[in-house]
Simulated assay, not measured.
Amino acid sequence: MNKVDLESKYVGKTAIANLLGGIGYFYGQSRIMLPKDISQIYGRKSISYWPAALYTAVPSRSYFPRGFLWDEGFHQLLIWRWDIDICFDVISHWLDLINVDGWIPREQILGAEALSKVPEEFVPQHPSNGNPPTLFLILHDLLSNMKLGKFSDEEMDKISSFIGRAYIRLVAWLQWFNNTQSDFVLWSG
């Protein structure tokens, strides 16, 4: 039984080390697909999103050197347990990408490294496409642990403060999701 426990610990340490080692900083501009009627008027199929920075965990730096919004919720379920400040920094970077409609591009293909790994036809992001808002998994996990008294008063203040600052963007994102991804509605107002 001890051998299994030691192996499990080794596998767990290796997995978290790979996850943490996959955190990267990217900078650049995503490309956003224009609706057909607008692209016909302007003669372009896509436009550049604003220049942005993204601090994010990636599934594989050598094969996927870009941020995936869907994945980030799952990554941060582990990362917050290791360093909550890194978790909040990553979530903040993603929320900084929200547009006026509440949409966050599903993939962030920022910079030459990321562009070199993605076929050209998959680079533009479609504003009609969204992933389920997995970042809410972390917030739910944090709030559940707060209710169970697993944080110090200082940690609880830090979590509450972060959620308070992020609240407006989180609501906008959830509203966009619920209004546009009707086949996948998770919650209703």
Results as ranks from 00 to 15, higher is better:
Pro59Phe: 09
Arg169Trp: 08
Ser62Phe: 12
Tyr10His: 12
Leu54Glu: 01
Val100Phe: 10
Trp173Asn: 13
Tyr55Cys: 09
Asp37His: 10
Val90Trp: 11
Phe184Tyr: 02
Asn99Trp: 04
Ile98Asn: 04
Ser92Glu: 14
Ala52Glu: 13
Leu110Gln: 05
Cys87Leu: 03
Pro127Asn: 03
Gly21Thr: 04
Ser48Ile: 08
Gln181Met: 08
Asp157Tyr: 07
Ser92Lys: 15
Ser48Pro: 04
Lys147Glu: 14
Lys9Glu: 14
Lys9Tyr: 13
Ile84Thr: 00
Gly43Glu: 03
Phe88Ser: 00
Ile47Glu: 06
Ile138Tyr: 03
Glu113Val: 15
Ser48Thr: 10
Leu78Arg: 06
Pro132His: 06
Gln29Ala: 09
Leu186His: 03
Leu34Lys: 11
Trp80Thr: 03
Trp103Gly: 01
Pro35Gly: 02
Ala17Thr: 11
Asn145Gly: 06
Ser182Cys: 11
Tyr10Gly: 05
Leu137Cys: 04
Leu142Gln: 04
Gly189Gln: 13
Ile168Phe: 10
Leu69Arg: 06
Glu120Asp: 13
Ser8Phe: 15
Leu174Pro: 06
Asn145Trp: 08
Ile109Val: 15
Asp153Tyr: 05
Leu143Arg: 12
Gln108Ile: 00
Ala17Ile: 05
Gln40Arg: 12
Ile104Thr: 07
Leu97Phe: 03
Lys13Met: 14
Leu148Ala: 08
Ile84Pro: 00
Arg165Trp: 07
Asn18Thr: 07
Ala112Ser: 12
Phe151Val: 03
Leu137Gln: 05
Ser188Val: 10
Phe88Ala: 05
Ala57Leu: 04
Glu154Pro: 00
Tyr63Ser: 12
Gly189Ile: 14
Arg169Lys: 15
Ile91Lys: 00
Arg31Glu: 15
Tyr63Asp: 14
Trp176Arg: 05
Tyr167Gln: 12
Gly73Val: 07
Trp94Cys: 02
Gln125Tyr: 04
Leu20Asn: 01
Gly189Arg: 15
Leu78Lys: 05
Tyr167Thr: 07
Gly67Arg: 05
Tyr167Glu: 12
Trp82Met: 13
Ala53Asn: 15
Phe64Ile: 10
Ile79Ser: 02
Leu143Pro: 00
Pro127Trp: 02
Phe122Val: 00
Lys36Cys: 02
Glu155Met: 09
Gly24Asp: 10
Leu170Met: 15
Gln181Trp: 01
Ser188Thr: 11
Ser144Asn: 10
Val185Pro: 01
Asp89Cys: 07
Trp80Glu: 13
Arg169Ile: 14
Arg61Pro: 09
Leu54Asp: 02
Asp37Pro: 00
Phe68His: 01
Pro127Asp: 03
Lys13Arg: 15
Thr134Met: 06
Gly189Val: 14
Tyr63Trp: 12
Glu155Gln: 14
Asn99Gln: 06
Ala53Asp: 14
Ile91Leu: 12
Ile104Arg: 08
Ile16Met: 11
Trp82Leu: 09
Gln125Asp: 04
Met146Thr: 12
Met156Thr: 12
Met1Thr: 11
Gly130Asn: 08
Thr180Gln: 10
Asn145Leu: 05
Ile79Pro: 00
Ser60Met: 01
Gln175Cys: 14
Gln29Gly: 05
Asp141His: 01
Pro59Asp: 14
Phe68Ile: 13
Ile47Cys: 03
Ser48Asn: 15
Asn2Ala: 07
Trp176Asn: 07
Arg169His: 11
Asp5His: 07
Glu107Asn: 11
Ser48Arg: 12
Ser188Met: 13
His93Glu: 05
